[in-house]
Design a binder for these strands. Structure first.
Length: 117
DNA sequence: ACTGGGGCTAACC
DNA sequence: GGGTTAGCCCCAG
């Protein structure tokens, strides 16, 4: 069972909001959950979420629109792709998802650059 | 408290 | 665009 920390719950809450047929990146989920720069924590949480089917973990991909390899092996990656294709998410010839087309765009996304001037 | 790692990323070759 | 290098921050020994 994953840690019952508030951060994890917020992450799962955000992932549950990702619409069917869309995908979000780890960093994006972290940001929307109010946890900027904690993309890895999201990945960690997704890893643990595999046990509970209540969260659509398959809609979270890396910043390149690709499916990240996991410690368990390639099996999960294949399952993730299958689930996404079943929802209508398309992959290019390189096996990556065009985020400009299937990426989730919640309100306030993308975040304003901090200290950009 | 410390160390090693992780379903990550942006920055640089 | 791919391959590598640093940061990132939290979690588990």
């Amino acid at each position: 069972m994953p840690p019952a920390s508030d951060a994890w719950r917020r992450i799962y809450a955000v992932v549950r909001r990702i619409p069917r047929g869309r995908v979000a990146t780890y960093g994006q989920v972290a940001w929307v959950a109010g946890l900027p720069r904690q993309a890895r924590l999201v990945g960690y949480a997704m890893h643990a979420a595999g046990e509970s089917t209540t969260v659509p973990w398959h809609r979270v991909v890396n910043a390149s629109g690709g499916i990240s390899a996991r410690a368990e092996g390639p099996g999960g990656s294949v399952l993730q792709r299958l689930r996404l294709e079943r929802e209508g998410v398309g992959f290019d010839t390189r096996g990556r998802i065009p985020l400009e087309r299937y990426g989730w765009r919640p309100r306030g996304w993308p975040p304003p650059r901090e200290r950009a001037d």
